[in-house]
């Protein structure tokens, strides 16, 4: 996945696609006083997250790039939380794994699909008014409908094609030599909103982007054309299941206003706000599932690894 950093023959060069890794804990709380501590681990194709929930409330998380294999990525994600809070696996009452590497989380008690976990996580982050969830992950894109409890009622996923995924965004950031976090803001610094490049194929969008640069477009304008393509792409996916009021976006691209604002414009609907990092929705949902299971079945013995 991270070929620019690990290819044995690649020269050292700036990694424009590299997004910020992030570790956080709620300093106002003390996990030692919690009755139930549960952990959700989301091992995605590009990023891995660990979320700690104390008595059903978000307590800490760590979000980082997925390494070469799922078990290590899961362990490293948890290690980040341990370093920040002192919490160890022996203090945890249950671990649920999710994401594409969910069956390879060595210390998890149960695996739950990312569809169910994203819905549950979004229900916590955006409240029980959330009905439509768009998750733009590193290598896939999901559209989910859920009820007021965060239970999935309808979903579809596209992981066949890179158009409309974070990977597609990384490609353009590398091509333009602009850090990925700047793409969104820059896409609005244009004299006139351009037409979208190909919204169905990243490879074709890339050649179109190069042709536009040659034809005299500024980098910002090319980025705008690309963000518009990305937005058109995910909106066409969303239309298959329909969009209901209570629209919530999760995943890394939720942090790119260049895509989010264009999606909102195409749909004519505003996405709900949240203060919580959009990338942790899956792991948060997994930790919340674990919390419910602890209420039903009692604490589980830790699995050593």
């Amino acid at each position: 996945m991270s070929q620019t950093s690990t290819a044995p023959t690649a020269e050292a060069k700036p990694e424009f696609w590299r997004w910020q890794e992030n570790c956080w804990a709620d300093e106002t709380k003390d996990w030692k006083s919690a009755k139930a501590i549960t952990v959700g681990i989301d091992v995605g194709s590009v990023s891995s997250q660990c979320v700690v929930v104390a008595d059903g409330e978000l307590y800490a998380y760590n979000s980082m790039r997925t390494g070469n294999n799922s078990p290590d990525s899961a362990k490293n994600a948890f290690k980040g939380v341990t370093e920040k809070t002192g919490l160890t696996l022996n203090d945890v009452h249950m671990v649920v794994g999710t994401g594409y590497g969910r069956v390879n989380v060595p210390f998890s008690h149960k695996a739950i699909t990312e569809i169910a976990c994203h819905a549950r996580g979004a229900n916590y982050m955006g409240g029980n008014g959330v009905r439509t969830i768009l998750d733009m992950g590193g290598q896939d894109c999901k559209a989910i409908h859920c009820d007021e409890k965060g239970k999935v009622t309808n979903f579809l996923m596209n992981d066949k094609c890179a158009a409309g995924t974070g990977r597609g965004m990384e490609v353009i950031s590398d091509l333009m030599q602009i850090p990925i976090a700047e793409l969104g803001p820059r896409s609005f610094e244009v004299d006139q909103e351009p037409d979208a490049v190909s919204s169905v194929c990243v490879v074709f969008a890339k050649s179109e982007a190069l042709a536009l640069l040659k034809a005299g477009y500024t980098k910002n304008k090319v980025i705008a054309a690309y963000c518009q393509a990305m937005a058109e792409r995910v909106v066409s996916l969303l239309e298959r299941i329909g969009v209901e009021e209570g629209f919530f976006i999760t995943g890394g691209i939720a942090k790119n206003p260049g895509v989010v604002k264009r999606i909102e414009k195409l749909l004519g609907i505003k996405a709900m706000d949240t203060k919580i990092d959009s990338q942790i929705a899956g792991a948060l949902g997994a930790a919340l599932f674990a919390n419910t299971l602890v209420q039903k079945q009692g604490p589980q013995a830790p699995i050593a690894c």
């Binding site: 996945m1 690990t6 890179a162």
Partner: peptide, 11 residues
């Protein structure tokens, strides 16, 4: 199935 993803797979 996608050129972009296949590149990662080849790597």
């Amino acid at each position: 199935q996608c050129t972009v993803f296949a590149e990662s797979e080849v790597v």
